[in-house]
Design a protein around this nucleic acid. Sequence first.
DNA 1: CAGTTACTAGCACAGTCGTACTACAAAAAG
DNA 2: CTTTTTGTAGTACGACTGTGCTAGTAACTG
Lengths: 220, 220
Amino acid sequence: MLARLCYKEAVPKVVDPAERRSLLAEAVLRVVRRDGLEQASVRNVAREAGLSMGSLRHYFASQSELMVFAFRTVVERIELRLAGLEPESDPRRRAQRILSELLPLDEGRRAENEVWLAFTSRAMVDPALRALRGEGYDALRAGCRTLIADLSAAGLAPADVPAETDRLHALLDGLAVHAAMRPDIHTAESLTTAIERHLDALATERASRDASGRSQEPSS
Amino acid sequence: MLARLCYKEAVPKVVDPAERRSLLAEAVLRVVRRDGLEQASVRNVAREAGLSMGSLRHYFASQSELMVFAFRTVVERIELRLAGLEPESDPRRRAQRILSELLPLDEGRRAENEVWLAFTSRAMVDPALRALRGEGYDALRAGCRTLIADLSAAGLAPADVPAETDRLHALLDGLAVHAAMRPDIHTAESLTTAIERHLDALATERASRDASGRSQEPSS
DNA sequence: CAGTTACTAGCACAGTCGTACTACAAAAAG
DNA sequence: CTTTTTGTAGTACGACTGTGCTAGTAACTG
């Protein structure tokens, strides 16, 4: 009996409650991608996860809560992937690597991208999702700004950091939308080279403006 | 009586059938923008248009048909606006003008843009809408290609037309998405200057590559 | 005039929706 | 042991969905 008390939290549970919620969130993502967000009803998600409606409602009090959690799961997964990247000191290679990580280059990221698009669209009329979408937007924009600032400091991008952040951010999301619309045309290779070309263009433009506009350049 | 026969098609009808369909399509667009695409049910649209369900069904046999028509209305409206632009011989100014026409710079175009985003998202799982979305995608891409080709021929954009078409197209759609997500940040002015900066960048890049890569330039 | 079509309105049906609710089993706690 | 909590399942309710259907009215046709 005393032994039992020591192990009270060790093995007994078949599945962790938090893990159950994650499994349900992934069921949401599967349904959203396969049938669209409007098909992600409580019934369909429960069936997809192999649970009953009542059981699902034990983990999520409302469907809105379920949707918000599922969306947040996608956002956190992307952040985790970015955090897991090995550090890269060269700004050009770092930009290339981080931006490539954000593009839908494989099946998993394609799924995330499509789900992201669906949630983004619904966030137009759903306040709860709008707040989350805003967070994702801000995080991505901040990331773009950091990359551009580093490139600019290294003389590999124009000096107007806000303007180039705007352009890179729009290019990134535009490529993602196009990849979702025409996955046959926008392959992993074409997306990667599109980003490469843009980074090349930034460097070329900076070099050109430096050469024409100034006689001296900053040494460090 | 003879007079009546002559005027048989002149005044009698209160509203033209085709016009009725357009009015219903615009009711769809209002509902989609205000409450989201999933709220654009037959009942809601009929109420928005001030008609009964049965009457609506006399003009559209199914809800899918109604949605397709509404989406096509948006596409055609954009095409009409582009066709109505006064000709501009200078490629740089023409690009600026056409691209500005495609951005959500005023309330009407903002509405179109949001509706476009909603339909684009649903087209992921709706085959009927997917075909239309593909048409819009192709048309926009072809337009971008023409602009880039003209700029390139005038020495105002890099020679790699497909690559720059890809970049401009993605930038354009990315800006549109961002404008829908954050209309407070992406104002008409910021969107316009973003496009201007990109066109400037294209010219700068072309000039830089011409200067470094070649000793002679094509005369005509 | 009568006959036909175009149009409008409204109801009924079968289905899905989110949510509230109860009942039952298993684990944890006393 | 009993009690309480936790998890699961199932059902019921009111609201909404797209579609089929009928009836009635207005307009056009012969």
